[in-house]
């Protein structure tokens, strides 16, 4: 069979390029050929990007959902093999409501997941594939990396209720230093905790710029192991062409009920929001009764319209 590549539009070309990339690295394709019960999603609602789901009654009377997400289904339908490493990728339409919108949209999404004995080398590989995915879309990209283990240390020691903690986490995601101080002051928390949290937040930028200060701060707090792991994971970029495209930034946060460890987000110049997001989600695996660890990311192809015109 022959065909002219010009029949593909830009987003289709990107999809095929991504699939070629993932396959070349030994990732196997996962196809979401059937629908899942609504219950799967409702039990993990906060994991979904938007919490609205299209539901319908199947012929047997079960309440089903029109795929709002691929990862949950992938975990559910994949055999748990904690001793091995399983590499999977997907490319599916999902159905979501975007922020500020009042209707469902069909969204093309591609992504990959690593299950099993996920170690630092495996996370490095996923990070490198995230960088390569972004580079395929546009060479003018930035990959922002955070470590939730390190951030959690600075959050967990603050003696406040769950509500205040959630507010704090929001401030972190906004780089909102004044509100962190204000919040802690109004709850009569030692100022030092706030200052330390702000110190972590102010450590952002390229690894060369950040890691030394981070090592000092972590050594002070007994987090040597954590910072060592982060150093190892990002060392994959040290000699690479993407060296200047990597940012360490602890304001990148994800839901701590699902994610842990390394998380990351990708940005393309000219696109106002993240186009790639991912990380380690061992906590979600555990919630779903899996012994495997996991790491992966998704590319939001719908957000690229602006630069493709």
């Amino acid at each position: 069979m022959e065909f002219n590549i010009d029949v593909l539009d830009e987003s289709e070309k990107i999809i095929f390029a991504l699939r070629t990339l993932y396959r070349s690295q030994g990732y196997r394709r996962y196809r979401m050929s059937k629908f899942e019960e609504y219950d799967l999603y409702s039990r993990n609602k906060d994991f979904l990007v938007s919490d609205s789901v299209i539901t319908f009654m199947d012929l047997n009377g079960k309440l089903m959902a029109l795929k709002p997400d691929v990862t949950l289904s992938l975990i559910k339908n994949n055999k748990d093999k904690p001793e091995e490493i399983q590499k999977l990728y997907y490319n599916e339409n999902v159905y979501r409501v975007q922020k500020g919108s009042d209707s469902f949209k069909e969204i093309m999404q591609a992504g990959l997941e690593c299950f099993g004995a996920v170690d630092p080398a495996c996370i490095s590989e996923v990070l490198m594939l995230a960088a390569k995915s972004l580079d395929l879309i546009s060479p003018d990209f930035m990959l922002e990396i955070s470590d939730l283990e390190i951030l959690s240390f600075f959050l967990d020691r603050i003696p406040v209720s769950g509500d205040v903690r959630r507010e704090l986490l929001k401030c972190v995601s906004e780089k909102n230093r004044h509100e962190i101080l204000h919040l802690l002051r109004s709850h009569e928390v030692q100022e030092q905790y706030g200052q330390d949290l702000i110190r972590v937040l102010e450590l952002y930028g390229g690894p060369d710029h950040v890691m030394e200060g981070l090592r000092d701060l972590c050594a002070e707090k007994g987090l040597e192991e954590e910072v060592e792991r982060l150093t190892r994971v990002i060392s994959v970029f040290r000699e690479s062409a993407y060296k200047d495209r990597i940012l360490i930034d602890f304001s990148a946060v994800s839901d701590l009920n699902y994610y842990n460890g390394i998380i990351f987000r990708g940005f393309i110049s000219g696109v106002p929001e993240e186009v790639l997001s991912g990380g380690q989600y061992d906590r979600l695996m555990k919630k779903m009764g899996r012994k495997s660890r996991a790491c992966g990311f998704a590319v939001y192809l719908n957000k690229l319209q602006g630069i493709m015109r």
Binding site: D140, M142, G205, F267, I268, S269, V271, P272, E273
Partner: peptide
């Protein structure tokens, strides 16, 4: 600040 702009115009 826009989160994406911040990365490119830091």
């Amino acid at each position: 600040a826009n989160k994406s702009s911040f990365k490119f115009k830091q």
